[in-house]
Amino acid sequence: MALTLTHARYQLLETFRIPMAVVGSAFFPAAAMLFFVVPFGGDHPVGATMATASMMAFAVMSTSLFTFGIGVAEDRAQPWDPYIRTLPAGPFPRFGGRVIAGFAVMGLSVLPVLAIAALLTEATVTPGGLLLGLAALALGSVPFTLMGLTIGYSLPSKAAIAVTQLVFFPMAFGGGLFTSPIDPPGFIETIAPFLPTRGVVELAWAAVGDHTPSAVSLAALAAWTLVAGLGAVHAYRRDEGARFS
């Protein structure tokens, strides 16, 4: 366990030595808050609260996809990665360390969104609701982390960058993160329940407000998590096979 924390610490150390990487993952959700939520729904307490939850879900999904999809693919391309595999530790410390470091970066990316919501909008939440919402987001990061790992362990880094973006865009927009939660455009209303983003954001909405998640969205979220989990395990095993066998 101590070694897992050491791995997490060094991953974060490397991340923070190139601060733009952190700024990048925190920037888009914050910018989306400032450009979409504050001017168009900031003065409506319920709307602002739900939109804030959407933006936090957006921050979580984008950091999980990018940290793991691109980060893992880039690390695999470096000779340092096979070297670490020769050290007397199994694969878990590096893997666990990566997940912990990913969570930390994720936490940083939701902070600006929270700050903007508190200072510039009428969004309100009880302390219990906030904690529940954060828990929903932590849970919701799982399918995206697994998708990122699938991409990272199965593709070379250049392909991983492209594929991560290809996955990210429809997930964010199709899931309805950038449209009104109450009255979304028709096609989004049709596809959103089948995307994992929707399930995550519905859980967050339920945590912070008066919302009952739809069974379809939650079932879709569970199915995506399962499929992404199988994909990640398969990609990881195959990668070990390529290096170990």
Binding site: Y10, L13, E14, R17, I18, Q78, P79, W80, D81, Y83, T86, P88
Partner: peptide
Amino acid sequence: VGMTPQDTGLPAAL
């Protein structure tokens, strides 16, 4: 056991 990594792969930021 000790082993040498390829120097091209040392983590540059550390």
